[in-house]
Design a protein around this nucleic acid. Structure first.
Length: 823
RNA sequence: GCGGAUGUGGCGGAACUGGCAGACGCACCAGACUUAGGAUCUGGCGGGAAACCAUGCAGGUUCGAUUCCUGUCAUCCGCACCA
């Protein structure tokens, strides 16, 4: 029988079937164990790129495997569809973001469907639709009600090009994450989520996530940046408090100066009316003019000046000069730092430069009382020059003793500081979920009543590149009636950061069509937590931290049971071309459309999974794509040949009538079934699973040259199609049907392997002397180490292997090797 | 500077628990079939004439190390004047 591998017809046919029959719909009432598999939903830019293809191919192989393994799989897809690109496109083309986004979603959905992915499309969500953002606003109100959403005036990160503020997490080395412009500081009244309330839990619960890569957990750990220390009650000479945070309170007796951030409010207060006021103000101005980038670059020469005032060290009563410098920042701790040049490298450099005194309080090898320190001492040691604490080990004893003493005497208190800041969610842009708050001249800040949700985005707005939110151009949006007093009031003009929308979408999939609630608790609790989450490592901090925060907060409100959203996380590597990331700006994009058009979806999927294990970056290679296409054709012809051979034959397996070749073939078949199952289900090494299938195909071709048994061929072909189907579902379904099976592979169970078929009668073992291979032997399988040792001793070639030397010891590894230690 | 990861043929990669380094594929070479081959099939393919030498480099542990330990170099990623 001769039939061509016509992938276009085959793929279109099965995709249609899967869609019409809702093959991959998830059902709540099922008896099967649930498995929630989620790939990070895309921003609908309009075009699928290779990163998407990789992400969704990985997810699809896993999903199809889990379906076959008997799980009730929830495998949904949707759109993270608010955001700047739509708005920028609108400005550029004088159009509206909404139709632009809608048509992009339609395009991308079509492209996704040509990949043959096993999604439950009935649960599709798009964050820009009112039936979704209504609930984003509702969640905002829950956070607000619980004191986790608040408004404050703060120095915030402002991107002049995007004309909006940014969260701390969205500033990369002083530049805007999105457009790379230099970020400015602006003092604005903005909405924040109080993620810092959850800092400790977000940190602690990383330990509850053994299924996350250490890399991601470390990044979150560092981002939260917990440090334990003491806030020491320094004061001015006349008793005004200047608390200093320190993690090295063991060195408190070594303080020889204090440093304030130039923005510290005490600076202006202390110099007011003094002769140095002008010089200090000039210095502060100079520091503030340095851009954020330079100021945080680390290469900035440390500069400072004394402001003429003094601080009192509460432990010693000593008077130390107050300086201001360009290296202390207002954002961390209290903006005031005690200077201990003897035991801090940075302070040492600074004190040396400006001739400030250096006083050792921890002993070191070359210590001579009264002699200047030759270098900074950051190592641990025993206390000196520290009153009653002298002689204690600084870390093991003095840390605790000094903190206790300060707390008992009201000189300071233990404090835990985090680097994590509250999440700034206001955006001065149009294409996002409006913040559901009303400002009433009489009643003040009033949350929109839940019954009035959603606060709809107005359509009577103009998109002009003015740098102001287009919402302000709407004649109808601003003015509202106050829900409390009924008087005239105004709406909040800012929209929410799009990361808010993506922080709960995984909950909505569990109950995507609910128009009475964000989600039904029972349904969400049924599916949550996500068993496997898959996406790019670029979301290690932002999205994954925010989503964890939301899940914990909603858990605390009693809305969900889970307090961690994602049990297992797989971070896939980037798709590279010529060593760099494919991107529009570099113009080095290989379009998935072209590949699918030319070779088909099965080839595209196979290539991207075969080229590298999922976590690793993947170098695109056109030639290798053709190799995968060739392999699919090889499978196609193979199964055709086997069908011809089996035509009219009895394919019932008779284990007693198998030749040695038949047994060898069955052994490979069953080993491959086992290996592919492990590679997909346990190791996520999809590439080695494909290799194993290729080896099996090679073995089958070799077997076909021999005296074949139709039953063995038939069994092999069926198993091959079943285990290959997660990778190349269209072709496998087609061949499966051609072989006369009525039930689709998608509904078929994953095959069991037979341990007995995998056993072998004889094994080849290696004979080594001192670890060097000398010989190979074929011996009966299953010999114990002792039997093997005896076998080798009595083996004819034993003396020859020794080459005249003495055998000292024999190490035997059953079924593998024998190593003879010789002298 | 701190933290993390990765270094294996011409290339992508394999070796899962310390046990035959280079599976599988790409590229390349030779051959078969063919009017033809960019289809298909067969064989070869780390270096070396060989003994042997080879998993970034230098040591160590071990009967045995790509795998474990110490040091070091390189590349990538994250954080970075954090007090």
């Amino acid at each position: 029988m001769e039939r061509r591998y016509d992938f276009k017809t085959i793929e279109a046919r099965w995709q249609k079937k899967w869609e019409e029959e809702k093959t991959f719909a998830a059902h709540e009432g099922s008896d099967k164990p649930k498995y929630y598999l989620l790939e990070m939903f895309p921003y609908p830019s309009g075009k699928l790129h290779m990163g998407h293809v990789r992400n969704y191919s990985i997810g699809d192989v896993l999903a199809r495997y889990k379906f076959m393994k008997g799980y009730e799989v929830l495998h949904p897809m949707g759109w993270d569809s608010f955001g700047l690109p739509a708005e920028n496109a609108a400005i550029k083309m004088g159009a509206q973001p909404e139709p632009w986004t809608t048509s992009n979603i339609a395009n991308m959905k079509t492209q996704l469907q040509t990949m043959g992915l096993s999604y439950d499309w009935d649960r599709e969500v798009a964050t820009c639709l009112p039936d979704y953002y209504k609930w984003t606003q509702w969640i905002f109100l829950q956070l607000y009600k619980n004191g986790l959403a608040y408004k404050k005036k703060a120095a915030v990160n402002w991107c002049p090009s995007c004309a909006t503020v940014l969260a701390n997490e969205q500033v990369i080395e002083g530049h805007c994450e999105r457009c790379d412009s230099v970020v400015e500081k602006k003092s604005l009244e903005q909405w924040f989520f109080k993620i810092t309330d959850y800092a400790q839990r977000l940190l602690d619960d990383l330990d509850k996530l053994p299924g996350w890569p250490d890399k991601v957990k470390t990044m979150q750990h560092n981002w939260i940046g917990r440090s334990e220390g003491v806030e020491v009650n320094f004061t001015t000479e006349d008793g005004r408090p200047i608390p200093c945070f320190t993690t090295r309170h063991d060195t408190i007796f070594g303080v020889t100066y204090m440093v304030l951030a130039p923005e510290h409010p005490m600076v202006a207060e202390l110099v007011k009316g003094t002769p140095q006021e002008e010089a200090v103000n000039a210095f502060v101005k100079k520091v503030q003019q340095i851009s954020t980038v330079d100021r945080t670059s680390g290469n900035l020469e440390k500069e400072g000046m004394p402001i003429g005032a003094f601080a009192i060290n509460p432990m010693t009563g000593e008077k130390v000069p107050i300086w201001i410098t360009n290296y202390v920042i207002m954002d961390y701790g209290t903006g005031a730092v005690m200077g201990v040049p003897a035991h801090d490298g940075r302070d040492f450099d600074f004190a040396t430069k400006y001739g400030l005194p250096i006083k050792p309080v921890i002993s070191y090898d070359e210590y001579v009382p009264g002699e200047p320190m030759p270098h900074v001492v950051e190592e641990d040691g025993f206390m000196i020059n520290s009153g009653q604490f002298d002689g204690m080990h600084n870390r093991k004893e003095a840390m605790k003793a000094i903190a206790d003493y300060m707390e008992e005497n009201g000189l300071g208190k233990r404090v835990i500081n985090y680097r994590l800041r509250d999440w700034l969610i206001s955006r001065q842009r149009y294409w996002g979920a409006p913040i559901p708050i009303i400002y009433c001249p009489k009643c003040g800040e009033v949350p929109v009543p839940e019954k009035d949700l959603p606060v709809m985005l107005p359509t009577d707005v103009e998109f002009k590149p003015t740098g102001e939110s287009p919402l302000k151009t709407s004649p109808t949006f601003d003015e509202v009636t106050c829900p409390i007093c009924g008087g005239k009031a105004h709406r909040e003009m800012d929209t929410m950061d799009t990361f808010v929308c993506s922080s709960w979408y995984f909950l909505r999939y569990a109950d995507a069509k609910n128009d009475l609630q964000a989600f039904d608790k029972e349904k969400t609790d049924h599916w949550m937590p996500v068993d496997q989450y898959i996406g790019g490592v670029e979301h290690a901090i932002l999205h994954l931290m925010y989503a964890r925060f939301f899940c914990k907060a909603l858990h605390d409100f009693g809305l969900v049971e889970a307090d961690e959203p994602f049990t297992n996380l797989l971070t896939q590597g980037m798709v590279l071309l010529d060593g760099s990331k494919m991107s529009k700006t570099k113009g080095n994009i290989v379009s998935p459309e072209v590949i699918i058009e030319k070779y088909g979806a099965d080839t595209a999927r196979l290539f991207i999974l075969f080229a590298a294990p999922p976590e690793r970056d993947l170098e695109w290679n056109d030639a290798a794509v053709e190799g995968c296409y060739r392999f699919l054709n090889r499978v196609w012809r193979l199964v055709g040949t086997i069908m011809d051979k089996c035509e009219g034959q009895d394919t019932a397996l008779n284990l007693d009538a198998l030749s040695a070749e038949d047994k060898a073939m069955r052994r490979i078949t069953h080993l491959t079934v086992k290996k592919v199952g492990d590679d997909i289900g346990k190791r996520f090494n999809f590439n080695t699973g494909i290799s194993a299938i290729m080896e099996m195909v090679n073995a089958l071709y070799a077997y076909l040259e021999k005296d074949t048994n139709p039953a063995v061929l038939h069994e092999a072909a069926e198993m091959l199609l079943l285990i290959f189907s997660p990778y190349a579902p269209h072709m496998c379904e087609e061949l499966w049907e051609m072989m006369g099976n009525n039930e689709e592979i998608a509904h078929h169970v994953w095959p069991d392997f037979d341990e007995k078929a995998m056993a072998q009668d004889e094994v080849e073992i290696v004979i080594q002397t001192n670890g060097k291979i000398k010989d190979r032997l074929t011996i009966p399988a299953g010999m114990s180490a002792d039997e093997l040792t005896e076998y080798i001793k009595s083996y004819d070639g034993f003396e020859a292997i020794l080459e005249g030397k003495q055998a000292v010891k024999i190490i035997a590894i059953p079924n593998k090797l024998v190593n003879i230690v010789v002298k």
